[in-house]
Amino acid sequence: MASHKYMLVGWAVLVGVPLACATPPRKPGDVGLHADGVPMFEPCPEKALEIMRYLQLFVGEAAWIQLDANQSSAQSITLHDGPIESVLEEDIGTLEAPLRLYGRVWTGGEQPVIRYYEAQFLKGRDRIPICAVARLGFGQLRKRPESKPGTAILNSPRAGFYIVDAFR
């Protein structure tokens, strides 16, 4: 009887160890950083890719956004590392403006990296997963020299919102 008890305990340990060592799933935006503070590659979740296909959001499509919903009237804005809420100004795919966009900002490099993971219609529907980034050409999203660590002071409250299939 005692050997049977030890066998059950041993089996429980063998089965439980892989479960205890398994890493929990990462949340979007939970990525490693390069030495300069810029986030590393991050794949777009399969569910987001599926929803974007359904909504006719194709890689490379773009629209204008207000980068920070709380600073939309400002001439220059200050972004901080962490979550961001932006506003879509133009329709894209089957998404109609205005629309809330939720993502994350990293300010470690010469210009902030802004990745969007969710969108929400203003009429109270659920958030939907997406993969998009904020961009401006010709270095226009570059932070101003007086930006302190953990912040990015930008000359414009607007940027381009681009659909992507992975964050590079």
Results as ranks from 00 to 15, higher is better:
residue 90 E to W: 11
residue 119 A to H: 06
residue 32 G to A: 13
residue 3 S to F: 11
residue 131 C to W: 00
residue 69 A to N: 09
residue 110 E to F: 12
residue 57 L to F: 01
residue 100 R to M: 10
residue 20 A to N: 11
residue 99 L to A: 04
residue 31 V to N: 05
residue 13 V to L: 15
residue 67 L to C: 04
residue 80 H to F: 11
residue 108 G to R: 02
residue 42 E to S: 00
residue 51 I to Y: 07
residue 139 G to F: 07
residue 128 I to W: 06
residue 147 S to E: 10
residue 146 E to F: 09
residue 83 P to I: 06
residue 64 W to R: 15
residue 68 D to Q: 04
residue 45 P to L: 04
residue 71 Q to N: 07
residue 15 V to A: 15
residue 147 S to C: 10
residue 153 I to Y: 03
residue 118 E to G: 03
residue 45 P to G: 06
residue 16 G to I: 07
residue 110 E to N: 13
residue 1 M to L: 14
residue 58 F to W: 10
residue 52 M to E: 12
residue 4 H to G: 09
residue 131 C to P: 00
residue 143 K to L: 05
residue 71 Q to P: 03
residue 140 Q to Y: 07
residue 26 R to L: 15
residue 108 G to L: 03
residue 132 A to R: 00
residue 13 V to E: 06
residue 59 V to F: 02
residue 44 C to Y: 01
residue 117 Y to S: 04
residue 83 P to W: 04
residue 150 G to W: 05
residue 159 A to W: 01
residue 39 P to M: 00
residue 127 R to H: 05
residue 117 Y to R: 06
residue 123 K to Q: 14
residue 20 A to T: 13
residue 43 P to K: 11
residue 44 C to W: 00
residue 54 Y to A: 12
residue 152 A to K: 01
residue 95 L to F: 10
residue 162 Y to W: 11
residue 129 P to F: 00
residue 45 P to M: 06
residue 74 A to M: 14
residue 119 A to S: 13
residue 138 F to K: 15
residue 24 P to S: 14
residue 20 A to Q: 12
residue 157 P to I: 06
residue 36 D to Y: 04
residue 40 M to N: 14
residue 42 E to W: 00
residue 64 W to V: 13
residue 102 Y to V: 04
residue 168 R to G: 03
residue 92 I to K: 01
residue 127 R to S: 09
residue 15 V to W: 10
residue 70 N to D: 12
residue 7 M to S: 10
residue 161 F to L: 09
residue 124 G to V: 02
residue 83 P to H: 07
residue 140 Q to L: 15
residue 141 L to S: 07
residue 90 E to V: 06
residue 41 F to Y: 15
residue 121 F to D: 15
residue 22 A to C: 13
residue 123 K to Y: 13
residue 29 G to T: 00
residue 38 V to N: 06
residue 53 R to Y: 07
residue 65 I to C: 05
residue 109 G to M: 03
residue 146 E to N: 14
residue 122 L to Q: 12
residue 92 I to M: 11
residue 141 L to T: 04
residue 45 P to F: 02
residue 89 E to R: 15
residue 108 G to C: 07
residue 111 Q to G: 08
residue 100 R to A: 11
